[in-house]
Structure formats: structure tokens, C-alpha cells
Write a protein that binds this DNA or RNA. Sequence first.
DNA 1: GAGTGGTCTAGACCACCAT
DNA 2: TGGTGGTCTAGACCACTCA
Lengths: 252, 252
Amino acid sequence: MNGLSAILAPSRFGGDDPAPLYLRLEGAIRDAVAAGTLAPGDALPAERELAAELGISRVTVRKALAGLVAAGLLVQRRGSGTYVAQPPRKVEQPLTRLTSFTEDLRTRGYVPDVRVLSATVAPPTPEEAAVLDLGPDERVSRIARLRLADGVPMAIEAASVPAVHLPDPAAVGLSLYAVLEARGIRVVRATQRLAACNLAAAEAALLEVPVGAAALRIERVARLADGRAAEFTRSFFRGDAYDFVAELDIGA
Amino acid sequence: MNGLSAILAPSRFGGDDPAPLYLRLEGAIRDAVAAGTLAPGDALPAERELAAELGISRVTVRKALAGLVAAGLLVQRRGSGTYVAQPPRKVEQPLTRLTSFTEDLRTRGYVPDVRVLSATVAPPTPEEAAVLDLGPDERVSRIARLRLADGVPMAIEAASVPAVHLPDPAAVGLSLYAVLEARGIRVVRATQRLAACNLAAAEAALLEVPVGAAALRIERVARLADGRAAEFTRSFFRGDAYDFVAELDIGA
DNA sequence: GAGTGGTCTAGACCACCAT
DNA sequence: TGGTGGTCTAGACCACTCA
């Protein structure tokens, strides 16, 4: 017997609230987490136990839990149980400077790390050809990396660079710009597009968040002093772990 | 009889794919939309019909559809049916200038509109008191608005301003800054924090997107020339409808 | 009134994790 | 081995939409 169900029960249950059962259960658990009755790391009663004690079906309990897992409030581990999630530390990043991810994290006291997911050379996709201004007979080097802070996945970065600038993408470790710089390629400015999206299964798995979790999708085109595009990068930053900060001036 | 089920069936069904049924159905529908077999606005077969023709249960069909609704690929209308979503036009906004939402939209060819959700004067919350540097005996004016472009909800804006600057929040229509300016209050710069989040039920309903849809949460603190904070605004921008663009210079 | 999605149930089997 | 979450079923009732 676990007393938690008893704690959850009175708050929104039993009344003649017309809201769906699963939403009432969701709200009750949200309240318990907000009130501290359920602390990060705490295990919830098993689904079957919750269902039995609340007198509702397990499917309904699962629907409530699914909503909270999608919201990042709970974590479910198969074979183990359901737990209150640890709220991650937020990382801040300035939006108006072209900074090194690695240095950025280090100066903020995190231990940066990177995992190279893939490194290939291939003909450009139509999108790459258009953005990087490449002919169909030229080639692009692609490097996909997973960025971590203190061991926690923070972002996926997939960069495309004309192969003439980066013949060996596998040589890239922490910093793409360091490798480019060593070859005399200096990026001086970039245009960044930023939007929110729900993560698909593949990206969610890499970032260790539930499918559908919110992320920032950032597309960056970096250019040389002469205006030629030298890099196209698409990144996915975990929405629950990253804050971007911008200083704005008054517009015209 | 609707031929769509027959079209969906062969692509990933029937094989001994070990993936869960609902994920296979999700993939099949994704493929059909990507291939154009299902075009935006098209109605899908009814849930019961899909279940019957595919020989699976309606609960499983619903789980697959729920994933695609959360991803923004489908729209469900109670009593009517399930439809392929219309991909919305994306609005671009520069991130490095403090611009007027209304003017911004107008110059881009949209018809801007606003709905005032609430306008109140009240004692500050602890958060407002800290950010706006208010004493507990001072008061804040709050104005919550829904921004629309061509009639489509784009963003929710909840602004808090010291009441001495804005005695009558109900007087604010399209532009908060215009009202402030008329009283001689000139905002000259702002700090903006930007993160991705999954929308809760209340915000999702206002923006007419499914619960859990990705949004940009932007918190802005605007300041006067003397550095005093004059405005604190928290906004939620639809992730599927808004792109923020920033020009970056090379960092130190 | 017929059809649709929204909710809910009771029960089943599986894969996985812990002990 | 026993408990956990993950998947799936067949059937039910409701509220809503649309003709």
C-alpha cells in the first residue's frame, strides 16, 4: 500500500467535476509536484496500483501519465517505474554573437563533451546546393554531432560544408571552426533562423527526451568575408535545457 | 468504402516488422502525406473504418492518429472527421531589433489583428516586483493579448507595466508602446530570453493548436534610457508559424 | 438521426528490470 | 521470479457535427 494515491485522491477526485478523468488525474499529480508532495526522483505508485486505488482503469491512468511524460514532468522506465523528473539546469547562450559551443559551456562551468554521430562526404542535396551555392558536381562534407553538458545531451548539430573547405569531416571533434581556421577558412558572420518544433522519435532518442518534446530548431548559414557561404548547420536544442538571450535596440 | 486504407495497407503492414502496430500505422500515414497520396485538407477514413479495414483495434488507430495530431500533421474535428493539416505560412521576425508586432506583420503583407484577453491593475507578483523593481505598495497594470495574422492566432502576449506608467491598461489595443509613448514613456532597449516549450491546455486552446505543440516562450524586459525596467512581457509564439531571424557577428 | 471523434472499461500478453 | 511499463483488444457510452 502506498499513501500517495490517498494524497492525490481528495484534491480533484470524487467531486462532480465534468472534466475528463485523465485530465483531473493529470492536474492532481501536477499539483502534488508543485506542492512538493512529490519531489524530483520520487517514484509514483505503479499504474495498476493507481488505477485500483482510484477506481479507474489502467488505460485512463496511462493517458494521464502520458500527458505528464510529454510535458517533461515525469519519466517512465520500463520494468522499473514512474518517477518525478529532475528539472534540468538551464544553459544560457547569447544570440547575437557567433560563439563556440564548447567555450561557451566551459565559461559557464559545465563540462562540455561531444559525440560524433556521422562524418561523410557526398554530393549535395538540392537544399545544400542552393544554400551553399554549389554545383551538382561539387561535394559536401557532413558532420553530425551530439553536444553534451555535464554528460547531459543538449543539442544535435548537423553541419554541411563544401568539401573543398573540409576534405576530411572525420577530423572534426569539438570545434568545426577550429578545423576550418587551421585551413585558413575564416567565418565572419552568420544568419540564423530559429523556430520551435516538436521532436521526432530519432532526435528525441538522441537528446533523451520524450517524443514530441519541444526543441529549438536553429538553421545557420555562416559566411566568409567575401560573402560566400561556408557552412550550413541545422541544430536541435533541447527546449527544457536551453535559454537564448538577446539584447535588442530600438527599431527604426 | 474508402480506398485509402488499401493504399496505406501495403507500405508497412502485413510484414513481420517487429515495430509496434501504432508506429507502423503512423509511418504509413506520414509516408502517404509525404508522397502526396494524402493532400492537405483531405479527410482520412473514420477511425472505426481504418480499424476494421486494417484488422486492428480502434484504440490502436487512435494512438497512431494522436501522435500525428501532436506532430501537427493531422487535425481532428469532433463529430466531423480527421484531416491532413494545412501547413501554415511562416512569419519571420528579426531578433535584434525591438519592433512593433503590428507594423512588422503589415510590412510583410499580413493583416494583423489583436484580441484583448484581459486588462487589470493589481499588486505585483513577487516575480513582477523583482523584475520591474517595484515596492509591495506599488501596483502593476497587466494586459494579455492574442495576436493574429490574417485571422490565424500567432502569439499570446502578457505584459506587465508599473501602473504609474500605464494607469489604464484597457486603453491598450494594438500597440502597448504607442500608449506608453503618448505618455512620454520611451523604451530604448530590451533583454529577451527565448526558449522552446510544450504548450499547456490553456495556451494551446487560444493558439488553436494541439496540447503539447511546440512554442517559443519569450520573456522580454524593456528599459528606459535611465536603465529602469518599464515592461515585462511573457509571450508564447506558435512554433509552426513563426521564424526568428538573427544576424550574428563573429564572437570575441 | 446517422456518423464522427472523445472518453472509459476490463482484461490480456509481452519485454524488461530488479532481486 | 514477480513486478513494472508497453502494447493491444472488443466493446461501450457520450457529445458533437452535419445533412
